[in-house]
Write a protein that binds this DNA or RNA. Structure first.
Lengths: 194, 194
DNA sequence: CACATTTGTTAATCTAGTTGAACATACTTT
DNA sequence: AAAGTATGTTCAACTAGATTAACAAATGTG
């Protein structure tokens, strides 16, 4: 079934009784997006927390000059959303767009609230997910400030080899905070060095 | 009592019965650090989640060349820690050092675990805190990538006017990811413009 | 008080990374 | 097959911001 990966993901962190699994399933909906479609649009209020079952997405925003800045990617077993928008019900800062045909499991804000109340471990699950996400986000701030682009690229390649394969280079450049030309230069250097 | 600010902070998010308040108090310890002392040291395992009762701290790390990079500040009613280290029990990436005489309320990892189990709302409290912290951290990554230093400084000034007053400029420059000379140049420009 | 340390400014030089344009390659779509 | 669109490279001119160093001003300390 479609939700297998979600359930086995969740049970890595908390145990779910049969009844709780049923409650979970009632509160989540699967949806498939085609390549290019938007799961979240900058300016709209974000309605879902999304768990990627299959496919690949990019999260980005457009600055005042219309330039695109990639914030993150998401592949199988990752969460993606504009959490700030979801919890505050303010317009989203980000877009989440599918780079491939992508299937996600979607939780509305209300579904999450109910799950927090009805499934005891659920609050813990998200506390743990958020702890990790926050710690990773903090590390990324460090990285951007203290490490030159070349090393940032190497680190990215090490950490997310699947993503490097799946995603075009100019998007990776944007994620790293550099121009595609400069990434190309870095890659040329690395080939020469190896 | 010293913990008044902590308790009124917490009750902004969840309700605490008298008994729960007692349990909370049992699991937290106040400690005062003098100016210059370290609450967390890079390389040590971080033992506490800290709530600032009074004073001011900076969180920073030293890169391979020994240069200091400020990640955040914390003043009254803020949390500060190296969360990654606290939860993984791996050596901390950051230092948390007091810029003034600072009083904090400290929770050990074990105390937090017990509180999650014994005080029903506690898991929710931290889920909410982490949601906000994560969303803010994500916004900061955007900001660094898409906005020039001058605007980043203006935004910082708007958002944290108390901190701008309390903390020396060269630390703010480091927080913004620029050199102190460049911040000085920006400030000179702003005075001229106003 | 004088002296040292911390904090802030100004100016010259240097560099990592940007921008833009031209060209190459591949993948779609008609 | 032709033509368009998405992706990737290279080069030259440019700029945001770093680095170094010298000097003020402010603050702390014996």
């Amino acid at each position: 079934m479609e939700l297998t990966s979600l359930i086995s993901y969740i049970t890595r962190f908390i145990t779910l009784s049969e009844k709780e699994t049923d409650i979970l399933i009632e509160h989540v909906k699967c949806r498939t997006y085609q390549k290019g479609q938007y799961i979240v649009q900058q300016g709209d209020v974000c309605r879902y927390e999304n768990f990627v079952i299959s496919g690949c997405t990019k999260t980005f925003f457009l600055d005042e000059d219309g330039r695109e800045h990639v914030v993150m990617f998401a592949i199988e077993n990752w969460w993606t959303s504009d959490l700030g928008s979801l919890i505050s019900k303010q317009p989203a800062d980000y877009n989440v767009q599918c780079l491939e045909k992508t299937m996600v499991a979607q939780f509305t804000y209300e579904a999450l609230e109910r799950l927090y109340d009805e499934v005891p471990g659920f609050e813990r699950l998200f506390r743990i997910i958020l702890q990790k996400a926050f710690a990773a986000s903090q590390k990324r701030i460090i990285l951007n400030h203290s490490v030159p682009a070349k090393e940032r690229y190497l680190k990215f390649r090490m950490q997310y080899p699947e993503i490097e394969q799946r995603v075009p280079q100019y998007l990776i450049a944007s994620y790293l905070g550099i121009s595609k030309q400069f990434l190309s230069k870095i890659r040329a250097q690395l080939v020469y060095e190896e």
